[in-house]
């Protein structure tokens, strides 16, 4: 459903991505792994229209979305959960969730979607009237994911959902991400937590220095000597 071809992205004169190509199929979970500064977040930002590639193309459901605005891309059904749980601290949990629904269809089905979000994250229902800034780190991450679901995405892109969370919470978050994928949403996950990401995904891409260094089914990557050495410390 998503096809990125030969994408080059620059920050000014600095080239951040070199010919990145990747695909995400219907119902598939794909992880993009790599260490800091390798271009993982840049890849997501380019797909969601926050950055525009200098070369290459992005197609989604057969449509060229390379030059579309972020809001048009969200409307088409791609949701981007940004890194570092960027919730709006002075808005309440409820208001943050409502922010996720910007278009007629998601707004109309808002109440229903919200019930589903509470199914995944019962904790959010308890804190509905609380300001998002007063939530714990884990709860903020749950809120960020919940907010991302409010736009009724067909493809959800998660940027480092495990960043800065305790190991126990990481388990919980990944379990829920797995659940979300089983409901039929395609997922693209960016992670430094390579083991978890590969465990719940079908395929993986390894980004190094802004280019795809390795790709394959997650199981194969997990046993790949290079991945084991560089990312799993085995």
């Amino acid at each position: 459903m998503l096809e990125v071809k030969g994408m080059d992205v620059y920050y000014g004169d600095l080239q951040a991505l070199r010919g990145v190509s990747l695909t995400v199929g219907e119902g598939e979970v794909v992880s993009v792994i790599g260490s800091n500064g390798m271009g993982k977040s840049t890849t997501l930002k380019a797909i969601s229209g926050l950055l525009h590639p200098r070369r290459g193309s992005i197609h989604y459901l057969g449509r060229d979305i390379t030059r579309l605005s972020p809001s048009a891309i969200v409307e088409l059904g791609i949701s981007h959960v940004p890194e570092g749980r960027q919730v709006f601290p002075s808005l309440t949990v409820l208001e943050n969730l409502q922010m996720g629904a910007q278009f007629p269809e998601p707004i109309r089905r808002g109440a229903q979607t919200m019930e589903q979000v509470f199914d995944y994250f019962p904790r959010l229902k308890e804190r509905l009237e609380q300001k998002a800034g007063t939530l714990s780190g884990g709860e903020q991450q749950m809120l960020a994911i919940g907010r991302g679901l409010m736009s009724l995405p067909k493809l959800m892109m998660l940027d480092e959902p495990s960043l800065g969370l305790s190991p126990l919470l990481v388990e919980t978050i990944f379990e829920i991400i797995h659940k979300i994928s089983q409901q039929g949403t395609s997922l693209q996950i960016i992670e430094q937590n390579v083991h978890h990401a590969l465990c719940i995904s079908h395929r993986g891409y390894v980004l190094e220095d802004g280019a795809v260094a390795l790709l394959g089914p997650s199981q194969e990557l997990l046993s790949d000597p290079h991945v084991c050495k560089a990312y799993l410390g085995l």
Partner: peptide
């Protein structure tokens, strides 16, 4: 609703953009 969007832009314009806020 507009007021909440205004606050969202103030607090994190990138996140608001990523959610599809114009």
């Amino acid at each position: 609703r507009t007021g909440r969007l205004m606050v969202a832009i103030r607090e994190d314009e990138q996140a608001a953009l990523a959610l599809g806020v114009n």
